[in-house]
């Protein structure tokens, strides 16, 4: 499986004329700039969050229950909108997206939840394929890409099974396959191990790390200490009292040269993709 063609689809979504925004690939994939989110006036959830996530990072987001982890992720896939500040995805302010553009944003973001969010009466294949069908991809391409995604999550050959007959761990793998099947630039995981026993939780964490290895940015919200300790190499951000605290630098911060190299490859890929007559 190829590395994600970061920004290519998203660039097109923003620009109906289809020109790829060359500069997007050099920008951080995600920037939260002075973000404020308030549900109840007396207790703002996010008071002022400034956060930059580079391409190819694996970032843990943690904090006690109710701290605002889910809210932060929702702001990114535009399930909620900021009250103040900006959320820049590939350099674009998604708070200012028109409702018509939101689906295009979501096609470039994979999301995985604690409760899997599978359609129980659909087959495993259908649950994964849906992410490609909504984009109008031809059936032949869908079949091969779904097969690849299922293979990546260790569910090769399970496509025909109904989602509801799978175990919890398997269901979460299906959800991961759905999130990665269209090779999004970034994957958001909101307590993806919350419903799984500790061994399966580590399993799923391993799966996200494999996906990260292949170049995808991962933003992983969890309050499970065991996971944070299991992978000390990842950057760790704590949400506390409505602000983010940089608790641990990730390996990426030290591997700047590698990151730059990778970004350049992404640009080349994306430009090549954008030029293909579709």
């Amino acid at each position: 499986m190829g590395r994600p063609r970061i920004g290519a689809q998203f660039g097109r979504a923003f620009r109906p004329e289809g020109h790829f925004d060359r500069s997007a690939a050099h920008k951080p994939i995600l920037v939260l700039d002075g973000v404020v989110k308030v549900f109840r006036a007396d207790a703002p959830v996010l008071r002022r969050v400034d956060l930059t996530i580079e391409r190819g990072e694996f970032v843990f987001v943690t904090g006690p229950s109710g701290a605002g982890k889910s809210t932060l992720l929702k702001l990114v896939y535009r399930s909620e909108t900021v009250d103040e500040g900006r959320v820049l995805f590939c350099g674009r302010d998604i708070a200012r997206l028109t409702p018509e553009s939101v689906p295009f944003l979501r096609r470039n973001i994979g999301v995985v939840f604690q409760d899997f969010k599978l359609v129980p009466y659909w087959s495993v294949f259908e649950n994964v394929a849906v992410a490609l069908e909504v984009a109008g991809m031809p059936g032949r391409v869908i079949r091969s890409r779904v097969a690849l995604a299922l293979e990546r999550v260790g569910l090769a050959g399970r496509g025909e099974d109904l989602a509801s007959v799978l175990s919890g761990g398997e269901q979460q793998r299906v959800a991961v396959a759905r999130a990665i099947v269209n090779e999004p630039a970034i994957i958001l995981a909101d307590e993806p191990t919350g419903n799984l026993d500790p061994v399966l939780a580590l399993d799923i964490l391993g799966l996200f790390e494999e996906i990260h290895e292949s170049g995808t940015t991962v933003l992983f919200a969890t309050h499970d200490r065991a996971l944070l300790e299991q992978s000390p190499q990842h950057r760790l951000i704590v949400i506390d009292d409505g602000r983010t605290i940089e608790a641990r630098k990730g390996l990426r911060a030290m591997g700047g040269a590698l990151a730059a190299q990778r970004a350049q490859r992404d640009v080349d890929d994306a430009v090549a993709t954008a030029r293909l007559p579709l």
Partner: peptide, 16 residues
């Protein structure tokens, strides 16, 4: 409902 939620999540257009 779940189906609708999933469709929205993966970026289906409202008309879809």
């Amino acid at each position: 409902m779940r189906e609708v939620e999933v469709l929205r999540l993966v970026g289906a257009a409202p008309s879809y």
